[in-house]
Design a protein around this nucleic acid. Sequence first.
DNA 1: TATAAAAGGTGTAATTTTACACCCTTTTGG
DNA 2: CCAAAAGGGTGTAAAATTACACCTTTTATA
Lengths: 230, 230
Amino acid sequence: MLGIEYKNNSNRSTISVNDCFEVLTSDERITLREGSSFLEFEKGETIIKQGFVANNIMLIDRGVVKLDVTDDHKTTTVKLLSDGQFIGIICSFAHKNLSFSAEALENTRVEIIEMSTFQHLIQSNGSFALLLIQHMSAMTSGLVHWMARLNSKHVEGALAIMLLEFCKIYKSYKFELPITRVGLAKMLGYSKESLIKTLSKFNKDEILSINDKEIEVLDLKRLGNIAEKG
Amino acid sequence: MLGIEYKNNSNRSTISVNDCFEVLTSDERITLREGSSFLEFEKGETIIKQGFVANNIMLIDRGVVKLDVTDDHKTTTVKLLSDGQFIGIICSFAHKNLSFSAEALENTRVEIIEMSTFQHLIQSNGSFALLLIQHMSAMTSGLVHWMARLNSKHVEGALAIMLLEFCKIYKSYKFELPITRVGLAKMLGYSKESLIKTLSKFNKDEILSINDKEIEVLDLKRLGNIAEKG
DNA sequence: TATAAAAGGTGTAATTTTACACCCTTTTGG
DNA sequence: CCAAAAGGGTGTAAAATTACACCTTTTATA
């Protein structure tokens, strides 16, 4: 794994989605399989839009997804999600209508599970329910810390955090930016000019090596420092 | 109720903590009562600190609580909580150690429920588990929208949102600020100078009437407008 | 009660960020 | 294939916010 440290959201003993499914009986697994299907989304495609009826639980089989919320006509990116993560499960149970939007940043395969199937499993399998609650709890905790951390930074810090997140998602210090600079600026809540200038600065300072969308982290230590203190 | 509209986080059909407890059998209610106790906290007192062992679930019986998270040595206020709300239940199940801090903004009575008792109820009562998940889901959704909304505003907008939240908590357009201006500035993530100047501006513009900590909202319409657009 | 510490407050300089005005290049659609 | 739109980029002015310097009042506490 990469040498990036995640200080506050200690991942030791965090319950994964697979941990939850492992306690299901073979009958329950069959029910789950029968109540679910797969859907492919292309890079850039909208997976769900805030306001739609919440009929399903969605699980990322493979891909990268951007989770957004819109309030007062402004859209905020809340988190990036990847393989093995629920798309906004945290909020899916809350209302009849979804309170978030999701967009594929890479070609993404999503497992769609009927809400009623899922709810039935929660009611009938206590261990599954408890593990799911622990998983949701960990995800919410991570989400809140992520948002708090990102929002307490200036452009440089926020960009550094996001770049390190991309490294984590792509499991490499070299990756292709899955969005435009304008999109990245919007994700971070800064103007495109600020974002572009900061990216150029990182390039000039030899923290990054940038070729169009191709980004390589050259100085992890300095980038990590900016993420923490900037 | 107050005439404040909450656009995006529609509260219709949100499951409350009491809704969850209502499905417990009389035996389970006895277990719950035996596994819980009450504690009083004075205004300004720390209820829990990030990093402590998560042994309990805490429920606000009466009072006002400020929920904080600390990342990279910076503390962010995440939400204000009031009567009938869990103190960070969302995160309590996640790790062995708590990932948030809580401070009483008013004299507060907290019901402390043993984690093991709670977990046992989740495992044995499926309806309770499902309702709890729906409750947590709604709380998380609210939290995320609250944070996104607050963070996408300038001082004026953020202050307006917080003042309206106080109106909601105290169920009145006239209330006493439960914290100092320095504390309010920290809560909103702005400097004390910015906060004080904005508060003075609202007073001068006759949106508020301010006497020390005593605040009255004079022009709800304008304040609501600033909360939305500022 | 004396004294320090904390809170409340104001004006001004410095910093951060956005907005604007451009310009060039690439992509997209009729 | 051409025009328009979108993306990428830069310099400079304008706006938002902080930081600093300073002052007064209130609150703790030795």
